[in-house]
């Protein structure tokens, strides 16, 4: 059986004279953790933006579950199951923690305005299920006691975890995390590490990760893609990457 989830080939993004992404190819299978690494400014986030419809790539194909998605608008792509986070936390800061999780289930809570107005049985049931899903996740990420607190008042590491839980509420099959460990302390990074592995093993989803924390990347990735100055440099298992002379050169410079 073909278990390819995402297939990217020849992805190119040009901003005027700047070639930000040049002929990048990627492959993500079901239940895999794939990392994209590279020095600052290598074009990793631009790749993400092309994949999730923020940018329309200049050339190349993005095939998700056998279907080209590169020209679709962002919300359509996310509804197909590709959901991302950003380098900076983008929670709804004025809403409570649990509301952040409920609002992400908007499309799945199958209720309409009238049934909400009259609080019909099906509405109450759908709301209760939504709250239960949210509660399970809050329990998992250790935020159950903060459920009714404003999301903006959480500690930074908690906000990061809440953001991942919020993405999971949309029931994705590919979760794209842009530098999730940035700004976390070592203990929080370990928790994140555990959470990402759990997403793959228990929730059966794939994760595409951009990260600078090499300990995290090398520890959990199934495969790694290295990008340098917009061009693909290498790809392989963490072991292969660590011993690849081109990669070492790109990171440390020529000797």
């Amino acid at each position: 059986m073909d278990n390819k989830l995402l297939e990217v080939s020849g992805l190119t993004m040009r901003f005027g004279g700047l070639l930000a992404v040049n002929n990048v190819a990627l492959e993500v299978n079901e239940q895999e953790i794939i990392s994209v690494i590279g020095p600052n400014g290598a074009g990793k986030t631009t790749v993400f933006n092309c994949l999730t419809g923020f940018y329309k790539p200049t050339a190349g194909q993005v095939i998700y579950r056998g279907e080209p998605v590169q020209q679709l608008p962002g919300h359509v792509i996310s509804r197909k199951g590709m959901v991302r986070t950003f380098q900076h936390v983008r929670l709804f800061k004025d809403m409570t923690v649990v509301e952040n999780l409920l609002v992400a289930q908007h499309r799945h809570l199958n209720t309409n305005f009238l049934s909400g107005l009259f609080k019909t049985k099906s509405f109450k049931k759908a709301e209760a299920e939504g709250i239960e899903r949210a509660a399970n996740w809050l329990e998992r990420i250790g935020l159950a006691e903060f459920a009714n607190r404003q999301a903006g008042n959480l500690a930074y590491g908690q906000q990061r975890r809440l953001e991942i839980a919020r993405c999971m509420m949309t029931q994705p099959s590919l979760l794209m995390l842009d530098e999730p460990a940035a700004g976390l302390n070592p203990a929080e990074t370990d928790e994140l590490d555990e959470l990402i592995v759990e997403l793959r093993d228990q929730h059966k989803i794939s994760i595409l990760l951009i990260e600078h924390d090499m300990k995290l990347v090398m520890g959990i990735s199934d495969r790694i893609y290295v990008v340098n100055q917009g061009c693909p440099l290498a790809n392989g298992t963490p072991k292969e990457i660590q011993s690849n002379p081109d990669v070492i050169k790109a990171y440390l410079g020529e000797f």
């Binding site: 919300h75 996310s78 509804r79 959901v83 991302r84 509301e99 609002v103």
Partner: peptide, 25 residues
């Protein structure tokens, strides 16, 4: 209280993110 009201508040805070989370903005 309502689901749509919640979506309205989410849009008021960050309409791009609300869109990405599957809300029809």
């Amino acid at each position: 209280k309502s689901k749509m009201g919640r979506a309205c508040r989410a849009c008021a805070e960050d309409i791009g993110m609300a869109n990405l989370l599957g809300i029809n903005t």
